[in-house]
Design a protein around this nucleic acid. Sequence first.
DNA 1: CTTGGTATG
DNA 2: CATAACAAG
Lengths: 262, 262
Amino acid sequence: MRIVTWNVNGIRAAIRKGLDEFVERIAPDILLLQEVRAFEEQLPKGWKPGMDETVWNPAEKKGYSGTATWANREFVEIGRGMESSLDRDDSEGRIIHTKHPFANTSLHCINIYLPSGSNKEERQLYKEGWIEDLLNWAQRFTDHDEPVLLCGDLNIAHTENDIWNPSGNRFTSGFLPQEREWFSRLLASGWHDLFRIKVGEQKGPYSWWSNRGQARAKDRGWRIDYVLANAAALPMLASAEIMREGGLVVSDHAPVIIDLAE
Amino acid sequence: MRIVTWNVNGIRAAIRKGLDEFVERIAPDILLLQEVRAFEEQLPKGWKPGMDETVWNPAEKKGYSGTATWANREFVEIGRGMESSLDRDDSEGRIIHTKHPFANTSLHCINIYLPSGSNKEERQLYKEGWIEDLLNWAQRFTDHDEPVLLCGDLNIAHTENDIWNPSGNRFTSGFLPQEREWFSRLLASGWHDLFRIKVGEQKGPYSWWSNRGQARAKDRGWRIDYVLANAAALPMLASAEIMREGGLVVSDHAPVIIDLAE
DNA sequence: CTTGGTATG
DNA sequence: CATAACAAG
C-alpha cells in the first residue's frame, strides 16, 4: 500500500510539466496533493487524473492553496477541515480526511496543507493559531485502533537536521523556535515521523527547495513534507523515501513516498 | 534616410525575443517605438539600444502604453504630447515630437500611439476625443515648409483594403464608421499615407494581427500602423514597406519602413 | 524565482 | 492570446 504526499505548487502548471507521468511512475494507492491552486473545473478540458477516485478541497479564493486526495481505493469516509464543535474555518481548503479499506481494518489519511507564515506577520499569527487547533484536533486520532496517517506540507522544519542552514534561518518562518517546539509537542502527543524513523537521525534529505538562486542544485533545502503515523499505523511501515529527483521538473517540492505492509 | 515605426508590444519582451537583431537588420536612421510598456530604468541591466540617441515618453502607469524615439541623427528639438495652449494631458506617453537634421532642412518625426478603444466604452469615448484633438493639433504641420512625418500605431484601419474582414468588423473599435471618417478628414487636411501611395489601392498588406487563433498565419490582419507625410515630405518618398516577416517573432505588429531620398 | 489572477490590448 | 503588475509562496 503506497501513500504519497506532494505539494504540486499549482496542479495546472504541474500537469503541463508532466505530473501524469510521475504519478504513473510512482504508482500511489493514495495520493495526497497540496497547493493545487485550482478548482476542478479549471483543469484542462479532457484531462483526467490517472487514478480512480478523487476528492477536492479547493480554497474559496481563486488560484490559492487547496488540497486534493486521489485514490485507487474506495473512499469509505470523506471529511474536509477540522470536523468538530470547535470548527476552524477551512475556506482555504487545507484539510481533507479520508478513510479507505486497508487489510482487515481501515486506513485514515489526513491530507494537510499548513499555512505559510513567510509573507506577513498576520499570516504567521494565523499559522500559529492554526497549528494549535491542529494539534488539539489531531489528538483524537493518536489512540485510534485504526491506523491514521497525518500527511502533507507542514511548512515547518523540525530539527537542525531538517534544514540546510539552521543558524541562518533561526528567524525565518518555518524554523522559528515556537514552531519547532510545536512540532516536538505534536510528536510527543503520539505522532511518529515515518521518514525520520526509517532513515534515522542524519542531516537531510530535504523535500523543498526555494526557487530563488540555485537552491535545488546546491541542495539548500528544507524537510517540511511529512507522513506522521499514530501508534496503530506504525508497525505497518515498510519503506519511506523522498523522491528527490522525481519531482524536480514538476514542483519545488519533492514527493514523499511511504509504503505500508498490508 | 530610413524611418521605421513599430509597436513592439512591450519592449522588455521584444528584447528577449531579439529586438536588437531586428533593429540591426532593418538599420533605421530614426526608429519610432510604441507600446514600450516600461520605464527606461526597468530595461535589462547592461542592455543598450543599438542606436546613438534615445528619447523616452513612458506612461505614468507601470507596464502600460508609452513611446520611445531612437535615432542615429541628432535631436534638434524634442517635445512630448500635444504641445499647445489646448494641451491634452499626455500621462499615457502617447506622443513624441522630434526634429532632426535632414539634407539642407530639418525632418520632424511625430511618434504617435493612439489609444485603443476596444476594451471599454469609456476608452472608445476617450479615443474619439483624443483623435479630434490630434487632428486639430496636427493641422499646424501640414503647411510647414519643413518635411513632417506623422507616424505610429493609429489603431484605426482606414478603408476596406486595410482590414481582412471589413463587414465582420463594422462594429469593432478601430473600424467604426466615425473612426474611418476621421481618418478621411485627417488625409483631407493635408496628410499623405506614404505606404498606400507607394503600393497603390489593393487589399492589404496588413501591419497587425491578433494573437488569438491563427490570425497571423492566416493573414487575417489590419493595417493600423502608418507613416503620414505633409506636402513638404511627400516628394522625398523613395520606398515604403511593411516588414511582415521581420517583426514576426518580436511583436504582434510588423515594422513599417519608409526610405526618404535626402 | 514561480504560480496564477487581473487589467489591458 | 500575450504583456506586464501584483499577491502569495
